[in-house]
């Protein structure tokens, strides 16, 4: 059942992506709303699939790289759907939807070893740890999209060479505000998620130490530092625009390394549950 739901969700994301790519080329409101609706439908099927799986496992279904990435794709789409209502930046969909499809396909390629049920996964701490971090990552993905859009648009304005996208992309100030919004919302979430992780790790049932030089921990810290620097510079010196956009891109690459690279290529504590 879940796999059927997953296929339906992936299909919805694909159709939504096509819709949004058409919207990128032609300013036509109905196609935006149709794509938005299809993405919403996809997200509902996706959520149902994950919910069913979690109920079957009696824990949050993020126990393999495959499931984790799929869960992340869901968070990304949901975050976009909500942000769209809040900020009304339709064109963001044209960048987020393809990303969601990419993650869905990537997740189906990833190994799906299932670790034994129970153990340390069955805890509210883990659910909080994982959801906050994934939510933060989804926001960072949006910041990444806004950053890419900013760089594209800024390049056109600076070079005085107006391509096809000039008309369709929003103003620089707007994109920078989205970036700032995602950063200020995502960073506290990430911090909360990491603290929960450290707290849970130091509890007697898990590793008895908050920090154990696990590769995932190290990369998470690097990611956190990148965003911390970005936020700090924004608040003190007023970093914005191009620098901020590059930081958002750099930060998201760090997120991907922490999330996928470490899972797949390095060994550590976290590997136990997701490989």
């Amino acid at each position: 059942m879940e796999s059927v739901f997953l296929v339906i969700a992936t299909l919805c994301y694909c159709i939504g992506t096509v819709g949004y790519l058409i919207y990128l080329l032609r300013d036509w409101t109905p196609i935006h709303w149709a794509s938005w609706g299809i993405l919403l439908g996809g997200a509902l099927f996706h959520a149902a699939a994950i919910l069913l799986r979690s109920m079957e496992l009696h824990q949050l279904a993020v126990t393999s790289s495959q499931e984790a990435l799929s869960f992340f794709a869901l968070m990304l789409v949901t975050t976009y759907l909500v942000i769209q209502i809040r900020l009304q930046l339709r064109i963001l969909g044209s960048f987020v939807a393809p990303l969601a499809v990419l993650f869905m396909f990537l997740s189906s390629l990833l190994p799906a070893h299932i670790i034994p049920k129970g153990g340390i996964f069955q805890s509210g701490w883990v659910i909080f740890h994982v959801t906050t971090l994934f939510f933060a990552n989804a926001l960072f993905a949006l910041a990444f999209s806004a950053g890419v859009m900013y760089l594209l648009q800024e390049r056109q304005i600076k070079r005085k060479n107006f391509g096809y996208l000039y008309e369709r992309l929003p103003s620089l100030e707007r994109l920078d505000k989205i970036n700032y919004y995602c950063l200020t919302t995502g960073f506290p979430l990430m911090t909360a998620g990491l603290i929960t992780g450290f707290a849970y790790a130091s509890s007697s049932t898990v590793w008895r130490s908050p920090w154990s030089w696990d590769p995932k921990e190290i990369f998470a810290l690097i990611t956190w530092i990148i965003y911390a620097v970005s936020l700090h510079e924004r608040l003190t010196v007023g970093w914005r625009g191009r620098k901020a956009a590059w930081m958002a891109i750099l930060g998201f690459l760090a997120v991907l390394i922490t999330f996928l690279g470490v899972n797949l290529f390095l060994k550590g504590h976290h590997t136990t549950f997701i490989r």
């Binding site: 648009q153 304005i157 000039y166 929003p170 103003s171 620089l172 100030e173 707007r174």
Partner: peptide, 8 residues
């Protein structure tokens, strides 16, 4: 028009 693309 350009100003609007920069500042919104």
């Amino acid at each position: 028009e350009l100003a609007r693309k920069i500042f919104g």
